[in-house]
Structure formats: C-alpha cells, structure tokens
Design a protein around this nucleic acid. Sequence first.
RNA 1: GGGCGGUUAGCUCAGCUGGUUAGAGCGCCGAGCUUACACCUCGGAGGUCACAGGUUCGAAUCCUGUACCGCCCACCA
Length: 904
Amino acid sequence: MLPKAYEPGSTEDRIYHMWEESGAFTANVKSSREPFVISMPPPNATGQLHIGHAARMSVEDIFIRFARMQGKEALWVPGTDHAAIATENVVIKKLKDGGMKDPRKELGRDKLVAKIAEFVEQSQGTIRSQIRKMGSSCDWSRERYTFEPALNRIVNEVFKKMYDGGLIYRGHRIVNWDPKLQTTVSDDEVEYIEEKAPFFTFQYGPFEISTSRPETKFGDKYVVMHPDDKRYKKYKDGETFECEWINGKVRATIIKDEVVDPAFGTGVMTITPWHDTADFDIAERHGLEKEQVIGFDGKLLAPIAGEFAGMKIEDARPLIVEKLKSKGLLVKTDENYVHNKAVSQRGKGTIEPQIKLQWFVDVNKEVISTFAPVGATADKQSSRSKKAKKTTAMSLKQIMHAVVHHGDITIIPDRFGKTYFHWIDNLRDWCISRQIWWGHRVPVWYRGEEIHTGAVAPEGAGWEQDSDTLDTWFSSSLWTWSTLIDPKLTKDFSLSLEEMLKQSPDYQKFHPTSVLETAYDILFFWVARMILMTTYVTGQVPFKTVYLSGLIRTRDGKKMSKSDPETVIDPLDVIPKYGADALRLSLTLGQGAGADSRLYDEKIAGYRNFVNKLWNASRFVLMQCETIGVNPHTVTTYEVKSLADKALHTALQRVIRDVTKCLEEYRLSEAGERLYGFVWDYFCDWYLELSKGEPNPELLVHSLRTILTLLHPFCPFVTEKLWEEVKQSTDPMLIVQPWPFAEDEKFPEEHVYLQTIIGVITAIRKLRSDHDVEHGKDVSVTLVTKEWVPLLESQESHIRRMAKVESLMITTGKFKPAKDMVSAFLPGIEVHLSLAGLIDLEKERGNLTKEKGELQKYIAGIGSKLQNKNFVERAAQNVVELERGKLKEAEEKLQKIEQRLKSL
RNA sequence: GGGCGGUUAGCUCAGCUGGUUAGAGCGCCGAGCUUACACCUCGGAGGUCACAGGUUCGAAUCCUGUACCGCCCACCA
C-alpha cells in the first residue's frame, strides 16, 4: 500500500537514476524519427544554479519530454559556459578573500588560469547534480563545455574565417573601459544609473560651456556649435582664438557640426574625443587631434593634467573647479543636475570611454557567405531573379534582420521581434577582445610587422600570441552547432571547418535545432549573436523557434539577487521541502510566455498540494481495484457503462486534444492549468466521488494512465512513480510511453443530452441545498422538452444516485428557462442552443408577437446565407433582448446586420 | 528622447483570432473527519475588467487619447 502522502525525497533520485540507466535520455543519431533538438543555455560555471536556471530546466524539459513521447528523436544537449569575466572575477575574489593581495601579479597568467580551471571543474560537478535534481532529461553522453579543447579549435577556425572574410578587424576605436576590472566590455555590458551631480558652466574664451566632468577638460581645444545657430553666426568654422583655461592659455579652434543641439545649455560645447563616443565621432568627421587625459588606471595623466597628474578623477574634480573659480572662469553651478552614469554590469565600476587597439566584428560590411546561401534569402516569390544575386551579399546586420523578418526564425512571444529589430538598428561593431586571462585567447600571432591568424601557432621562432582573450559570447554564439561537431574531428588539423561539419553525423541530423528557450534578458547578448554568427558561418539558422521566458521575481516583484540572500529562493532548499515536481509546476504554470512571474513559498506549497492530490487519487483508484479484485497491471480494455462514465470519457478526450494543441503551440502554462483543473475539479471532486457508489475499475485505471501520461512532462517524478503502480505490465517506463491520441466524438449530439442530464442532476442538488430539502426526500423534475423525457427516464436510477434522492418524478410542463440549465452545467463543456430552439423558447415565454416572429424568421434567413451560426445566434439574441418594447430599434439593427452581410 | 509592455476579486495572475451570467490559485467567511487526500471536502462573499471617447447588433478583448507603473535602447556636452 502506498503511504498516505507523497514523499518526493525517497523517490526522485531513484527514478532519475532509472531513467538515465535506461538510455532514455540518449538520442540516436541513426534513427529515422523526426529530430527535436534543444541546446541547453549553458549555465556559467561560477558556482551553482539559481532559481532562474531551475526555470530554464523546467520549461525545456517539458518541451523535450513532450516531443519524446510524441515519437520524435528528442535531443537535449547539456553543457556549461566558462563565462570569462564572471568566472575570473569570482576566483580572484576568492583568492583575495584567502589573503592574496593581487592574484594576477602574484600568480601570473598560467597559474591563475590553472586555478580558475580547477574551480570550474568543481562547479561543473555541482551544476551537473543540480540539473539532475530538477529531473532534466538531457543527453549526458553529449555534454559539452564552451572552453573545452574541441570548442577552442572551432572558435579559432571561426575567428580565422571571419578575419579572412574581412569581418574581424583590429583597430583603434573608442571602447568601454572598466578601470576596476582592467578590461574592455561590450556595449551591452554597460548599464546606466541615474546620478545627481553638479553641472558647471565655465567661461571658455567668448563662450560659455557646461559640463559635469571638468576633469576631462584639460585638453579641450575645440569648441563646437551648430552651423545654423544665429547667436554664433559671426564665428567661422576653423577660426581660432586664444583663451585662459585650467592650466594656462590654450589655442582653441571653432568647429561647426550639426550634432550640437542649439537648445541645450548655451548651444556650445568643447569636446574630449579620447573619452567620449560622441566627441570621438565629431573628431573623426573633422579630422581633429585626440589626446588621452585619463589613464587606464583611472588617474589623470602627466603632463596634460599638470599639477593634477596622478590624482584620481573624483579627488581632482573639486580642485579643478576651485582653480577655475579662482581664475574667475566659473559662471554658475547647477546642483540639481541629473545625468546617467555608465557603470560596468559586472563589478559596477564606472566605465571610462577610452581609445584602444581592439578586435572588432564588423556588422556593416557586406559579405558573401561562403557556405550555402543564407536560408532567409530563399525569397520565393518576390522578384527572385533580380534579387537573388543581391541578397547573397549581405552584412551581418542584414542577415540577422532577414532570418527573423522572413520567418526562418519565429520569436515567441512575437512582440520581442520588435525589440530585436530595434536592437539591430542601433547595433555597432562588436568589440570582442578582453584584457583578461580566462577564455579563448585571440588566435593571432605577431612577429615584428608580421601577423598570423589561425588555429595553430605559426612555425618558426619569435612569434608571440596576442595577449587578449575573446568575449565569452563569442564562443557561446556558436553553441548550437559547435556542440554537434564530433570532437575527434577537431584534433585533425588537416580538416577545414566545412569538412568537420560535413563529417559530423550529429550536426547533419540535429542542426538546425528546434527551439531555443531562454529568458528575455539575454536576447541581445546571446540569442541575437547566435543568429549572427551561426547563420554566417554555417549558412543555417541556429534554431527555428525562440521561446523567451520571463524572469523569476520575488513576492514583491523585485529581482532575486545574490547580494540579497533574503530575497533569493534556492532550488536546493525547495526540492527537499516540496519536491522537484512542485518546484517545476510553480515555475511553469500561471504565467504567459515572456512575462515575469513571482515565486514564493505558498505558491510552491500549492503545487505540492496538487501533486499530493494526484497521489491520493491514484491511491483511491488502486484501493477500488483491490476491493473489487482487479489487478491494474492486467487491465487492457474498459467499458463505458454509466452516464458518468461517458461524461468522464468524453471530457478526457477533450483534455487530450486541448493539452496536445497547447503544447504544440508552446502554450505550456495553459496546457498545465487545463490539466490541473481537470484532475482536481472533474476527476477527483466529481467522478471519483460519484464512482464511490458503483466503481468501474477498468475505466478508472485507464483514465488515470492517461492523466499520468499527459502530466508527465510537467511533473515527471511523481507520474513515473505512480505509473509503476498502474501501468500495463507490458508498458515501458512513462518517459518513453507514447503520447495519447484523442478519440473522435462519434455522436456529438450525445453531448447535449449527456450534459443536459448532468445539468439536471446538478440542478437537483442545488435545489435541495437551496431549499433545505432533506436527504432522501422526493424530488420532481419538470422538463422543457418532451423528447428528453425518455432519455431521462432511462437513466433514472443513475440520476437518483448521483443527485442523492430517493425517488424521481419526470414530467414535462411549463417552460424552464434554458439559462438555468446552462448555469448548472459542468465546467469545460459547452451547450449549443440552436436558433430554432431560441425562437421556440421565446414563443414559449410569450415574447413573440406575430411581427416579432416574422423578425426571427428574417434573421434565420440571413443566417443561412452567412453560414455563420454563431454570429446569427448572438445577433438574434441581442435583437430579442432589445425588441421588448423597442421594435423600431431592433429593426434598425437588423438592417445594419444585413448591410454588413451584403458587403461580405 | 525613441521603443515595448502592464493596469481584471484583498494578493498573485489567466482570459488565443470580439460572442451566453468575466475565470483560477491563495486569502477571507460558514459548515463538515462521508470507502483516497486537513497538503482535504462542501457552500459563500468579493470585480462599473485604470480613465475618457470611438468602431460594432455585441467590447476586458479592436481603434484613438489620458493617467499611473515597469522594462529595453540611445544619450546631451
């Protein structure tokens, strides 16, 4: 006998082990089945998984299990990310906490990298076990890591390919420099926070200029204004003048440029091209000199800063203002000025724009993909002959745009498509080099003026490899396909990238992948870059569908952040308390795609209760079997005996249909909630209660099997466990059990009768409780239509039992409003009231005069023309409502309807 | 400044292409140990679907505008 309550702890690990041992997770590359593939977004190997990861695992596992049960060759590739900056920071911090002052200096490159690798290995172990705890049915035989040797080879090949294709270049550009972490970061890794800072206006020659950053102003020798600004008409472009400035006299040049907003401040500004993106652009346009003012350590430089050289900018700022004030150059100070300060997403240090020699991916250069033509450009109808040639030469930006625009990739929910296009429009070249040590090293070697790019170091002495590493997203952008390349092939350096792809069976079978599921906050970081890199390099889109989930928030709607342990819900705390199934349900149900959701204890407890309800329902079914002497494992067929049986059976078919459809359309929350409601309200509270009188054990077993099958993707552990109790002895494990098909409804009209009867029963029950009729007293039912009488009579004994009455009198008589009947019907089942019925109804009520009767016929006539039953019924009903005393208005409405019909 | 969402019961949220009396979970109130389940059962209260217009026979749903909240992008010296 099963225990009274479900105990996840004693079951989950055993079941997971059983699945894994059985090989159910392992995809067969030789199978002829249709593939269904998900690349797991590789968690950062920086410690352990948090609740967001748990959400990813839950959703993806639902997709994968559903596909597997539907008979597809399901592959879910797991792995981890080396997470360059993030991991290096974590380890450096650990070393510092351990007493080391400057780990980089003390250990040197090789030793530090070894330390980080060691740490990564540990956290990979933790992560693997956590993924298992969630019940994720991923293919461990194909586990990969973004920084493994095979992937390094691929990264290098891609770099070389793009370098040779002119898409990767090295140049002096303005970059986001993080003085705290001592590296550049990409535009997407910069955040802006509002800050109140004094806003100073200074006298600069004949002009007044304003700034919140006087410390950058030492070298300013260009004043810029709009060419059309009348106030400064007398100054000519290129004119120079001398003026007193921070450290003595400077010779300034006047520049006219249209980017200056005449309405802002005085309409005049000085520029600092080395430390400001906009100023840099102006300087480039006019060929102006650029000079560095602030060092990479965040301190002012000599000789330009004069007496302030070597000072930190925060310290120098007030002193500089003071000095200008003493010279009489400070015009005014606005203390309430609010501006946006750029900070690094990692580490939160202030970002200092700097000019630096870096590696970039060119997103605007038009290239011809050397592989098969880009999928999206298979632009079928629209002027193929003309465009075909043109569209093969596209920039990376255009490629990214095209594949989504043409539907090669579908984004769910679709509103994120707009966000995606918007991002592309604003996209600038991607800075891919980082001045850190942990990561794929830039595969470029230098010897004097010589430069070599490739997967292996060049032969001969004196070559030195670039000391920078690549942005971590560079390697993760190759994830969907680099993980499908046979690692053995990557050791053979005679093979090209194209040949490796061609010779990898996994790649041939499983790429492009089916769905990419991730939270929307890495749409740009990762999803967009995968599209960019993969489509260019392989000529295939990385995935056909992007499913974006929302973020998991706290009860108050705040972000869960590690720095605030109070708010964080740790999956490892939840699982022992409530079970992985309950956690999975609470992370996937009750939320639309792309919408954030809040997680809190009561919510998880609620789903734990549901799991327990399912458990007890199963216990009850088993008990019934035992009482009657039926062995559930031998049940193969069932009979639909009673009316209730029929209702259950029909409802079950509908659930199968609804759930399947929802899952196929990626509406998993709806699918889950449909099941939740069905199991609890219909199966348990209604059918099981009824069946206490006259149980039909075979049908009970069959229904339970179906329910378990449908629920399995959502809560795999408890369903697999219960499956062991009720499955046919020849059935396999639930994880590989085929998905059920819904039977066709042969006699749809039966529904109406069926539901009517059940409606009657429910109505009787309600009547009894409303009027305090004692249990067992006689009840008389008055019916609407004569034809239902024989039906009700034939089911009299059922009705009596179900309605808990001793005797029943069935008669026809005065009209009972159909409305009341409908309201008493069971949830999830509709009733079709025909137009004819409606007219009858109104006649019975005496609402139809002769004229009005004509009116109804008129409507019915329109109805047949339109062949839209629904529309006419509703319209007719409205007319009936309105016409009571307002015949004229009703006629007008009808005329409008008719006009609309004609226009159709 | 540009863009994208949200505003539905005390709380957290569903409501797909407009269609019977707007739903669920939790909470609240009342009753109840009936052959599974108190992690339960039965019953109940509670909503002018942010506001104002419009389209329609019919609007929570479509359109326009307003207010508030949130997110993303750009960034102004």
